[in-house]
Design a protein around this nucleic acid. Structure first.
Length: 572
RNA sequence: GGGCCUGUAGCUCAAUUGGUUAGAGCAGAGCGCUCAUAACGCUUUGGUUGGGGGUUCGAGUCCCUCCGGGCCUACCA
């Protein structure tokens, strides 16, 4: 038994996430966490909301709420939705937690002591009307290169030219539209990541088994141009973690907070402390996951994220951890994902294009979404959601192949033998042949899950379901029953046992249906089919069961067309 | 501009990292079955692997070039 620490990229607080966000980190992380738990490993699965930064402040202002209240409320909303999708976090924390405040300040203090923090005075645009400094991309104006009048301060979206806010002609605040802007001097802390470039390079080079997507992004940032650049880790904002050097004030940094990308990954650690505190456990309970000298040395740490998050997880956060000089656990494997597109374009939070987590659950139960999203996870390239594809996959894979198998077996048994596992007959050559086909498939499924090859695992699982239908079709108990009821009984006994095995194998993908299947088989035996033959005799003759309700209903053409219409445009 | 990824059957994806005749699922066609959510099974049609050139005994895989799609480019997170 191993110990596995799993974190999912933490979703930003300013709204409900869409299915692209979900499949890019939390959902595959959950799949892996569930699988590892099922295989008997000790798992710590952590996620949280990422609550700081300008967009959070603006979203709160738009909602007419104080930012702390807004974040608390949205955390609740996101928590409820993650529960709805059956995301099995051990703790869903908050980057604004007191634990993270303390830990973030601690890291900053350690980095300062190690000489890895530099104070830099720089010029930034301040908006008098908004009463705040503006990040580059919150300044709009006319592009000096192409004349586009909605160019942002960091880049012109029209001609793609990189810009400095002061390049803009007639600059204005993107928040209020005010042109009452001025350039002010302000002091910030920079993390001297450049000093750690060689260390990071070596570390990345040692990760030969990481996805290309992960290492290529890291190498690009390490080696592009002048190499890894130092990074500002503070901001002039009200909402955030106050800049402190450990427990002490930081002269000259009064009123400033840490940059959200500095404190967000630290929340992975603080979240474990939130978990321990909530359970009334001491520090040793969470430190054994995070401090290598206090037990975390034998932990395997796996992170899940979308590709846009890779630089922070491969460089900035490791630099923070390594630079502290303390024995914090570094990530062992990073699984990164491409994007999920929506029907020919991108999912868009701002335009309300696509399906959002709350809407998805209003339409169909979590399992339908989990299955489609995971079996189409954007691993090798960007993937695309279309309603036609969703309808076909759900109807075919879940309703026809798996659901109908459960249905035909249980109903046939009820009508011929009653609602208990029938005795009589023995497993013969057909059953042994099935076991011989099933065994390598299950081993392959395990290997794919172990390697976090999500789509391949889904494909193999589906093939395992298909084996049941093929067997049943060939064995034809409905014909055999007429001549030899005992032989038919053996076929059905095996098939009922197969339902239990399917429930166990399918649980990481479709936990609710899996629970329904086990409940219908009236068993708590969720042991993994290491020995397939033994697993197919777990339910003995005479064991009572019930015929479950339809596991998966089909999506009709009318529904599909309605949803297609409903989600095409701007969100209600 | 630079970098990375990607282009394989009508659709969604594979292809043991250079090795026989490029495979699955869905859709299409045919047959079978009647236990079941009109479900299931079997058979079958379908590809100049985006175009062109090169390296090699051998290329979907490596190189060059052109065309198309996507992402990143450090102050959104």
């Amino acid at each position: 038994m191993a110990r596995v620490l799993i974190t999912s990229a933490i979703p930003y607080i300013n709204g409900i996430k869409h299915l692209g966000n979900l499949v890019g980190s939390q959902l595959p992380a959950d799949l892996y966490a569930r699988y590892m738990r099922q295989r008997g490993h000790e798992v710590m699965f952590l996620c949280a909301t990422d609550e700081h930064g300008t967009p959070a402040e603006l979203a709160a202002a738009k909602a007419g709420e104080p930012v702390a209240e807004y974040c608390a409320r949205m955390h609740g909303v996101q928590k409820e939705l993650s529960d709805g999708f059956r995301l099995s976090f051990d703790k869903f924390g908050r980057s604004s937690s007191p634990q993270n405040h303390k830990l973030t300040q601690h890291f900053a203090g350690r980095l300062a002591e190690a000489g890895l923090i530099e104070e830099v005075t720089e010029k930034q645009v301040y908006s008098n009307a908004d009463g705040r400094f503006l990040p580059d991309r919150y300044i709009e104006g006319t592009c000096p290169n192409c004349g586009y009048d909605k160019a942002r301060g960091d880049q012109c979206e029209n001609c793609t030219k990189q810009l400095d806010p002061t390049d803009l002609i007639e600059p204005r605040s993107a928040i209020s539209g005010s042109t009452d802007l001025e350039v002010r001097e302000t002091k910030h802390l920079y993390l001297r990541q450049s000093q750690m470039r060689d260390t990071l390079n070596e570390w990345i080079d040692s990760k030969r088994d990481w996805p290309v997507l992960t290492t290529s992004i890291a190498k690009k940032w390490l080696n592009d141009g002048d190499g890894l650049q130092d990074r500002g880790i503070t901001r002039d904002l009200d909402w955030g973690i106050p800049v402190k050097k450990g427990d002490e004030d930081w002269p000259g940094m009064e009123g400033k907070v840490f940059y959200v990308w500095f404190d967000a990954p630290i929340e992975y650690i603080a979240c474990a402390k939130e978990w321990a505190d909530e359970k009334g456990l001491g520090d040793e309970a969470w430190e054994r996951w995070w401090r290598t000298e206090r037990g975390a040395d034998d932990v395997r740490y796996v992170q899940f994220m979308g590709k846009d998050n890779v630089p922070f997880h491969t460089l900035s956060f490791p630099a923070t951890i390594m630079g502290s000089g303390e024995d914090w656990k570094l990530v062992d494997y990073i699984k990164s994902f491409n994007y999920l597109n929506y029907d020919g374009g991108q999912f868009s939070t701002s335009q309300g294009r696509g399906v959002f987590m709350d809407q998805a659950l209003e339409i169909l139960p979590a399992d339908y979404w989990r299955w489609w999203l995971l079996s189409h996870a954007p691993e090798s390239g960007d993937a695309e959601f279309t309603w036609e594809n969703f309808q076909v996959s759900v109807n075919k894979d879940l309703a026809d192949v798996l659901g109908n198998f459960v249905s035909r077996v249980t109903k046939f048994c009820r009508s011929k033998f009653g609602e208990e596992v029938p005795g009589g007959g023995d497993y013969g050559s057909a059953e042994m042949a099935l076991i011989e086909r099933l065994t390598p498939r299950i081993r392959a499924y395990e290997a794919h899950m172990e390697a976090i090859e999500v789509r391949k695992a889904a494909t193999e699982l589906r093939a395992i379901w298909v084996e049941g239908n093929e067997y049943l079709q060939a064995a034809a108990p409905w014909s055999v029953f007429k001549e030899d009821p005992d032989a038919a009984a053996a076929i059905i006994r095996l098939s009922l046992n197969l339902i239990r095995v399917y429930a166990v194998l399918s649980r990481p993908f479709i936990p609710d249906a899996s629970a329904q299947m086990l409940a219908a088989m009236q068993t708590d035996d969720d042991s993994w089919p290491d020995d397939v033959h033994a697993a197919l005799t777990a339910l003995p003759p005479g064991h009572a069961f019930t015929v479950p309700d339809v596991l998966f209903r089909k999506i009709t053409d009318e529904e599909r067309e309605g949803w297609q219409e409903k989600f095409a445009g701007v969100r209600k």
